[in-house]
Simulated scan of single mutants.
Amino acid sequence: MDWATPLMLGQFIAIFIMAVALGLDALSLGIGIGMKGIRKLDILKLSVVIALFHMLMPLLGMFMGSYVSSLLGGIATKAGGALLLLLGVHMVYSSLKGEETRSIDHRTLWGITLFALSVSIDSFSVGVSLGMFAGDMALTVVMFGTVGGMMSIIGLLLGSKMGRWIGEYGEAMGGVILLAFGLHFLL
């Protein structure tokens, strides 16, 4: 494979731009979770799972092909937005209620899976669309996973720093960020 050709370079740039666009929700989720406070080991675990989901979801989408694209194109994005919205509402509610309610724990298998699914479900619909074109599937999947994982690390670290500055309102602000991104995907 010759990477010097304009076609390959153009494909690489297009995939990178799509990966960054899809990774923005991982960044926002990372900021929201990081504001609650997170350990470095949990940053690593959550980011690895998000990266895996960012590879798995478009891969599944690519295999589904054009049939599913016509049925689910906008639904996957709306479902991801709804999940982010629900997570945001839950985080804001938990922070306002205090210790009486528990927010979704990002350290449990269920919490990690829910967070990773919420930020990677839109990758499925992109994968479905990409499956209709003859592109480099391996490059796409690896790029989506790498960028999604890196953006979640950046978001978690940034949110962790912001959470220390903001103090006890960090979880509420993180929830507001998730609410905003959820509404963005729904509208």
Rank of each mutant, 00 (worst) to 15 (best):
5 T>W: 11
8 M>C: 13
13 I>F: 08
16 F>E: 02
17 I>A: 06
19 A>Y: 00
19 A>C: 00
35 M>V: 07
36 K>C: 01
41 L>A: 14
42 D>V: 01
48 V>S: 11
50 I>G: 06
51 A>I: 01
53 F>A: 12
55 M>K: 07
57 M>V: 06
59 L>N: 07
64 M>H: 15
66 S>A: 12
71 L>V: 06
77 T>N: 10
78 K>P: 09
80 G>H: 12
84 L>W: 10
85 L>N: 07
87 L>T: 07
92 V>A: 09
92 V>H: 05
93 Y>W: 11
93 Y>H: 09
105 D>V: 02
109 L>I: 13
110 W>T: 09
110 W>D: 06
113 T>M: 11
113 T>S: 14
114 L>T: 10
118 S>D: 06
118 S>E: 07
120 S>W: 09
123 S>E: 05
124 F>T: 04
131 G>I: 12
132 M>S: 14
134 A>R: 15
139 L>D: 07
147 V>T: 01
147 V>S: 01
147 V>N: 01
149 G>F: 05
150 M>I: 13
153 I>Y: 06
156 L>T: 05
157 L>N: 11
161 K>T: 07
161 K>V: 08
161 K>W: 11
162 M>F: 13
166 I>K: 04
167 G>Y: 00
167 G>V: 00
168 E>T: 00
169 Y>H: 14
172 A>R: 02
174 G>L: 03
176 V>K: 06
177 I>E: 14
183 L>V: 15
184 H>A: 10
184 H>F: 14
